[in-house]
Nucleic acid binder design. Sequence first.
DNA 1: GAGTGGTCTAGACCACCCT
DNA 2: GGGTGGTCTAGACCACTCC
Lengths: 234, 234
Amino acid sequence: MRVASINGWQDVQAEVLRRLHERLWKPGDLLPSEADLAAEFGCARTTVNRALQAIADEGLLERRRRGGTRVVVNPERRATFNIPLIRLEIEQLQREYGYRLLKRRQQRPSKAVRERMLVDAEASIVSLRALHTADEKPYVLEKRWIDLAVVPAAADADFSVQSPNEWLVEHVPFSGGDLVLSAQSASDEDAEALSCEKGAALFMAERRTRNTQDATITVVQLVYAPGYRMAIDL
Amino acid sequence: MRVASINGWQDVQAEVLRRLHERLWKPGDLLPSEADLAAEFGCARTTVNRALQAIADEGLLERRRRGGTRVVVNPERRATFNIPLIRLEIEQLQREYGYRLLKRRQQRPSKAVRERMLVDAEASIVSLRALHTADEKPYVLEKRWIDLAVVPAAADADFSVQSPNEWLVEHVPFSGGDLVLSAQSASDEDAEALSCEKGAALFMAERRTRNTQDATITVVQLVYAPGYRMAIDL
DNA sequence: GAGTGGTCTAGACCACCCT
DNA sequence: GGGTGGTCTAGACCACTCC
């Protein structure tokens, strides 16, 4: 037998991956059909299907009805990462989490906020500034805007004890959105809140969250203290 | 009928997601068993399994043998994104891609490189600097180190026409690794290569790639020109 | 011990789409 | 038209783990 012994779909996946690694099937090549592979491996087609699906989900194979399964030519690496609650992120580092609400206003949106949230000038917005600390040291500055038309309850929420981050997770159904990562020079406000020098290079994550009706619930900018690293496994 | 009509696993997924949205099943709650749900939906247990698996993969449910399926309490958002070849990334922006090799050396690793690559002082390393441009303007500076013990062919590769990025994708079997995103102040070298001011806030991605034997193939630092944004859909 | 999810099997039908 | 992947079904056995 060429293959040690195929028991489950993970074995099939491993064997297919091995052949891809060894360039036995090269980029652009057409793989045998599921039925043929099932015959070769001595398992049900369903099992082969499951394995190939998993590999295709990773971006290494491309599958089409009637067209068969092809090895992708430019295998874009696809990375998955978690966006944890800041509190949990800090606690996982074995550091003591702290939180402080710096500012809270209810107001009409500025032009910049209107563009970010895609709301009109009449909207009622809760604007927040909060600081998350690790071992008493500034960790990340949270700048957040919440649309009260979409989340009326936010008007009465007490963000001085619970961070808007966590409050929203608890009170608002999850939904879609997007995330933009960038590097920014510290503004005066950033420098003061994070106790760093003005102009320092800061890692920033800006996240927009939409509900199921595609309305913008909230936009948040997380401005991390200097030295922050976002690690992702591939 | 309570439910419109359940045909496929995607319908089951949609219905379960609806119940999660509506808080019919709250964080921490135990869902009915797959068998019960299958009976309710009038489909096979396999179909329910597929649907719940998909939701669990998104991080919203937690499943355990014997323990059943639970709604996750703190639903960490899980995001996936592609890491494209730089050339394709630029071409997708409808800008003209350009590439220039700035420096190439073959040498023993410095202490900093040894730490990054986890190799010893005797290793033979190809050290590269290359610039990728969009419409003739600096886009990203690539600092790369390749371990010749792992990739001997890199000693003879001509990186002046093809970027190491693409050469490696073509010649080295894909593998695991990790990725670290951060913000850095532009060094003298960065500033000169990217035509920006020293100290400017730059977005940096550092990636380490390992082969199947867990040896470090290459480490690359991608230092992006000011203003770069990395966008991710959630 | 018993109930749960994890998975395999064999067969079936369908949607797609290349030739 | 016909071959491919996408999926469903019903039944089965197993692994895990809570009670």
